[in-house]
Nucleic acid binder design. Structure first.
Lengths: 274, 274
DNA sequence: TGTACATCAGTGAACGCGCGTTCACTGATGTAC
DNA sequence: TGTACATCAGTGAACGCGCGTTCACTGATGTAC
């Protein structure tokens, strides 16, 4: 439907003829740069003017006429969607990198064949489940605090008159997948030792299992329920901070958030295991 | 500064002369009704058009000219503030009523002198701390689900170009005070039995104590920290649901929320005690 | 290597709509003597 | 009980600004033969 990807697709088809200039044509590269620039300027506007996104304002800032933007995005809502997807991806990467900083030894031959011993001796163990939850939690918060308007875009109140299309769903899951993985690994390793005695009702089981499948973990329903509760708290805590509910309440925001995360890892039954 | 309250104040002064028609003059009563009607129509618009509040749209719906609204609210932002305060108060009342359904026996001579035995035999005991948390939690959620746009107004992303004035703070605390009271009562009664062993750092103590004072409880820092964490989760869970993050995930929203609440009362160390 | 044609980015004007706020005004309601 | 004056609600026009989207157009870049 949209013609955005056509240039790239076409470029791929002619890639073998142009050896020097790599795959994409000049036009395609300029187009990609322009598209990125539009998104960048749009984000600047979100940050500056509050959260109303205006095509005309973006065009003005780029020294173009507003109608020119329609060469890149078929409508304002499509631009919004692009920003939302980028935000989810950016947050997802931050979360994934924080978790990836924990090395692989102790796990089975997981990733590719590159099983050579870690080059950084101080790399934390992947079996330090509580440490991983803390690291990922802090990474998510740091991202949100650094980009509060992008955070509001994806975790704030729905935008009037806009409904996110289905293709926002996979990126939206990335941060959740990272958190879910930690709990799943913990359960696989030691069964989530101090599991609470509150088991979800049988009625909730099918959907909890479905969620675990969807996030590509194999945590049991009770573990999934506790994981979702802890994740709900995590984003709730960040929303409280980013949306201003901690103003004049806590000065040491990181310290307070850190305490909450630690408290919730205890709730989850995650243990340190170095 | 604002002239809104003047009519009422003036009416009070002449209250003793008019016996039949009570205190407020006709004009004052009509004015109060109009003010209420404007707020009602404004809320309808929030619910219908998404969350952009427009004075002109409100005026249109009331069959008035837009400038007429300036007789009632000096600006759009003041109307917004009024809506926000009303929303907090409405939610506060819902929370307070849910907690008040638990009778007083077992407590010291708390409320006024009306200590006659409860007329409803099935009234739950105030010492059922877990039950109270559940009841208040469900009341808050029910309010939010019934009025999602009002919920978004007070717990959603900040409104671009608007900053809430200080007089929104006391109403904003009403729901928190109700929740805090439960934990404080529990701690006074049995010291929060299954308290976690994670104590907040000394650095957080002053602010935690300050919060407890502000909410008029005397919970210790560890109890306050756990209470705030549970409250953060509670509003996080409601936000997830109201902002659409549970779509295509859970069908039994009440059941899922209920499980989370129960799980968090265990985290809090609240016990049933009938 | 050069010409002819297709693709595409960006322009500028316009459509049709929205908004908050100010201002001088008309009439009705309330108040003081 | 009646008159004179003050208060207040609501009007209608206007100011000055914003917005998303469409459309016919000009030129430049790319492509095929």
């Amino acid at each position: 439907m949209t013609s955005d990807a056509d240039a790239n697709t076409g470029a791929d088809a002619t890639a073998d003829t142009a050896a020097d200039k790599a795959a994409p044509s000049l036009r395609a590269r300029v187009r990609a740069e322009m598209t990125a620039e539009i998104k960048r300027v749009a984000l600047d506007h979100l940050a500056a003017d509050g959260s109303a996104l205006s095509l005309r304002a973006v065009a003005r800032d780029m020294g173009m006429v507003s109608s020119a933007l329609y060469r890149y995005f078929p409508s304002r809502d499509e631009l919004l969607t692009a920003l939302i997807i980028d935000a989810y991806d950016s947050l997802g990467v931050a979360a994934e990198e924080a978790d990836a900083a924990f090395s692989d030894r102790g796990e089975g031959a997981g990733r590719a064949g590159r099983a050579e011993p870690s080059d950084r001796a101080d790399r934390a163990d992947r079996a330090d489940f509580a440490g991983r939850w803390l690291a990922v939690g802090h990474a998510i918060r740091a991202w949100a605090v650094a980009k509060p308007h992008e955070y509001a875009l994806i975790y704030g109140s729905p935008i009037p008159g806009y409904t996110a299309p289905q293709n926002t769903v996979p990126p939206a899951n990335r941060p959740m997948v990272v958190l879910a993985r930690i709990v799943a690994d913990a359960q696989a390793a030691d069964g989530l030792a101090s599991a609470a005695n509150d088991r979800p009702s049988a009625q909730l089981h099918p959907e909890l299992t479905q969620i675990a499948d969807f996030l590509n973990t194999h945590t049991d329903p009770a573990g999934t329920a506790r994981f979702l509760t802890a994740a709900t708290h995590l984003f709730g805590a960040i929303s409280f901070e980013v949306f201003g509910r901690l103003n004049n309440v806590f000065t040491d925001r990181v310290g307070w958030y850190d305490w909450q995360l630690r408290s919730m890892t205890a709730y989850l039954g995650l243990v340190h295991n170095k």
